[in-house]
Design a protein around this nucleic acid. Structure first.
Lengths: 147, 147
DNA sequence: CATCATCATTTGACTAGTCAAGTTAAGAGG
DNA sequence: CCTCTTAACTTGACTAGTCAAATGATGATG
């Protein structure tokens, strides 16, 4: 009864894996009092701060509404500050967030890395990265069929 | 400032790609009045029905609570029926759901497949599948450190 | 038979996100 | 100065999920 294509099998694998590793990552980050989504957003802010909400939304592939809610939560926890700056709101990390990230970042990187380092050699990782990059970039291109 | 490992780059790519393709799939399935998550769950039920909620939860990697809410929504829309059967609840598709799936399944498979067919040749797809399978299986093994 | 243990499922309080309609802040034109 | 447009952001109603405490259903034991 295997009426599945290779593509659909890959798709399923990707979905299940990201789902699972995401949850494991949430678990791992619990000791820093962060979720995976929050870590992701805070890292992007750290790299690009100061930046506006729309810029950030684009970087983490979330809608304007989504980023608005996320930032409201992060602000409530004192991880970021937003200030009205002309028409837009400018986002910056607080010292608290910087301190947590200094701790959490190397550990989270090591955690992510361990998913691959333990089962794939360097060559295989490069191959996987290259293939996924092609697939991802292609999917982004399809998103704007008007261009 | 690239303090990223290959593993963390792969991780990011996987997250962003699944995120994005998931949204595109939601969009695609709109014409069948289904979300990607619903399609996924209905397909699993179709393959394994009749089955219990806990069995289903495991198949789609969701918690008991999560599957309970999802099934409540699907039941409200008349896609499934649950009946108390001894201690457990047994799930079956309705004729309505079967009819929709007959239509949606081939199209959704083709949709998923197109993400890969258009940019990777057969050999590359097999490689990608093999690598992701190793990574995924390994991550599942880690989940139960007590064994 | 009442209570107890044990699965299976549900539910309350949350995070994280979507879409679409509603605000808000500036600048532009009458 | 007032209205109009527009870009940036927020919000209401919803899906999808988590965890942990509560509820249901059944069988076992004193």
């Amino acid at each position: 009864m295997r009426n599945n294509t290779m593509g659909s099998l890959i798709w399923l694998r990707l979905m299940r894996f990201t789902n699972q590793s995401n949850q494991m990552s949430n678990d791992f980050l619990k000791r820093f009092d962060l979720t995976t989504a929050q870590f992701d957003v805070l890292m992007q802010i750290r790299i690009y701060q100061p930046l506006t909400q729309s810029e950030l939304a684009e970087k983490v592939t979330v809608t304007q509404g989504g980023i608005s809610r996320m930032l409201a939560r992060l602000e409530k926890e004192n991880y970021i500050v937003r200030k009205q700056d002309w028409k837009t709101k400018t986002i910056n990390l607080t010292a608290k967030a910087e301190a947590i990230l200094d701790q959490a970042m190397p550990e989270q990187l090591a955690f992510q890395t361990s998913f691959f380092d333990d089962v794939l050699d360097e060559e295989e990782q490069k191959t996987l990265y290259k293939l996924m990059t092609r697939v991802h970039k292609y999917s982004q291109k399809r998103e704007l069929p008007s261009e």
